[in-house]
Nucleic acid binder design. Structure first.
Length: 425
RNA sequence: GGAGAGGUCGCAUAGUCUGGUCUAGUGCGCGCGCCUGGAGAGCGCGUAUGCCGAAAGGCAUCGAGGGUUCAAAUCCCUCCCUCUCCGCCA
């Protein structure tokens, strides 16, 4: 959520950001108008409440019964006026909050302007495209032929877009998770094990509701939502808190499954395990002071890159252009790993500086050491790689002519003695 | 799921029965000052957040949300959470 002060003092900044995202700027004026209405009503209702407070106090100490009754009658009508105004005020405030919540974050000045993903900018490429002296297989062929990936079983027990990892496949994913968490711990993150279901308030605070309601799974009986990303519970760990400046920055990492109901567009990403309703992810998350957030953001990008680099994957870093940027992000870098089998760059990580956008919604502030009023923290989130896509990249990159897959060395401590995945008979 | 006890300004507590001197008291902690050779003790002052306002100041918040009332921490209703016991369970 944006700061109402921006609309009061610098509406042109908001309009400019909207234009860069190719969005309508008209709601800016609606916000300004609603804000004026809100303040008018607050002033009226508070003046009446002040009057009632004073007179009610007088009534308490009045001895003359007739005069007392007179005052009570007078305050009764004041009370009614207050009620009427309060209802109006609540309505205006709800409208304002609703509208304000619909604005995306202001863009960082370094974000290139562009309409859609075709105008994203590759800012870094690491590693050459691997060459094979045989035809590399896509994972949807490679996995089943090795007996480590079973689509039919997933469909049988749940439905389309669900799959089962088996044997060395399941173990490889578990190795990736454990290795990534340990890597992030070395990079300075504190590991968290989180609830995978959260209450409505939490999903709102993290900014997933109301906008992304269609993409979420919910248990209606218990009124709990399945997390679409660890970002949701991680953000809300400090919801409604005032942190000490000395405790910042806070770095957290967590492994969670992610659940997304999103309608899969027909014909797109239908093959393989690239896009499913359930997937695993290791997440990184930072709470920091505003003046630190850009440096922290770049640090996190480097941390995610390191994951790809240590796995020996060919990858590139993409800066998202204005039109492709997510709702809460001020700036986002995507990391894409090369999958030689399906011949595709796979988005394995997305790192965003959300500035104070989530912190304002979740009401996460810190108290400056020097004193003065509290300030909103900045938050940065990034995937310490999404598992299915990392799994794809690893399998397809390390496949051999005989159909086996050599497990990258960094994963060996978790994989057991057999570091080559062969067809299990 | 059942029974009971609770949730108050960082922490601990008073206040709730009997609505109005509660502008929420007290202790601890913390900050500033006095005192001191220095420290401690002692003394004094201060010590939540948000909103409205140019300011003075005002309004709101006692787990959350409703209600009763001129007036609610206090009375009523609903919900959430914590603790104890029982049940169930990995």
């Amino acid at each position: 959520m944006l700061d109402i002060e921006l609309f009061r003092n610098h509406p042109e900044l908001v309009r400019q950001a909207l234009k860069k995202r190719y969005l309508d700027t008209a709601p800016v004026d609606q916000v300004i108008e609603l804000d004026i209405q809100r303040r008018e009503r607050i002033q009226k209702v508070e003046a009446l409440r002040a009057e009632r407070n004073i007179v009610s106090k007088e009534i308490g100490s009045m001895k003359d019964a007739a005069k007392r009754q007179e005052k009570i009658e007078a305050m009764r009508s004041v009370g009614e006026a207050i009620n009427t105004l309060e209802i109006e005020l609540r309505k205006v405030e709800a409208e304002l909050l609703d509208l304000l919540s619909s604005f995306p974050n202001i863009l960082d000045e370094n974000v290139p302007v562009g309409a859609d993903e075709s105008e994203n900018v590759v800012i870094k490429s690491v590693g050459d495209l691997p060459e094979f002296d045989f035809q590399p297989l896509p994972h949807w062929d490679l996995g089943p032929s090795l007996g480590i990936l079973d689509f039919e079983q997933g469909v049988k027990i749940t439905g389309s877009r669900f799959y089962v990892l088996s044997g060395a496949g399941a173990r490889l994913q578990r190795a990736l998770i454990a290795w990534m968490l340990d890597l992030h711990i070395r990079q300075g993150y504190t590991e968290k094990y989180l609830p995978f279901m959260v209450k409505t308030e939490t999903v709102y605070a993290a900014g997933q509701l109301p906008k992304f309601k269609e993409n979420l799974y919910k248990d209606h009986e218990e009124d709990l939502w399945f997390i679409p990303t660890a970002e949701v519970p991680l953000t809300c760990l400090h919801m409604e808190e005032i942190l000490e400046e000395t405790s910042l920055p806070l770095h957290y990492t967590a492994y969670t499954p992610c659940f997304r109901r999103e309608k899969m567009s027909a014909g797109r990403d239908v093959r393989g395990i690239k896009r499913g309703h359930q997937f695993d992810k290791v997440e990184m998350y930072t709470f920091c002071k505003p003046e630190e957030s850009q440096a922290e953001f770049l640090k996190m990008v480097a941390h995610a890159e390191q994951t790809c680099a240590l796995l020996g994957l060919t990858y590139r870093v993409n800066q998202l252009c204005s039109g492709d940027l997510g709702f809460g992000a001020s700036i986002t870098y995507d990391i894409e790993a090369w999958a030689p089998g399906c011949g595709e760059w796979l988005e394995v990580s997305s790192i965003s500086n959300v500035t104070d956008f989530q912190a304002r919604r979740a009401n996460i502030r810190y108290r400056p050491e020097s004193g003065g009023s509290t300030r909103y923290v900045h938050t940065i989130n990034g995937s310490g790689l999404g598992l299915p896509r990392t799994l794809i990249a690893v399998l397809e990159t390390y496949q051999q002519a005989d159909g086996s897959v050599v497990v990258p060395e960094v994963l060996h401590p978790w994989i057991g003695s057999d570091t080559t995945i062969r067809k299990e008979y």
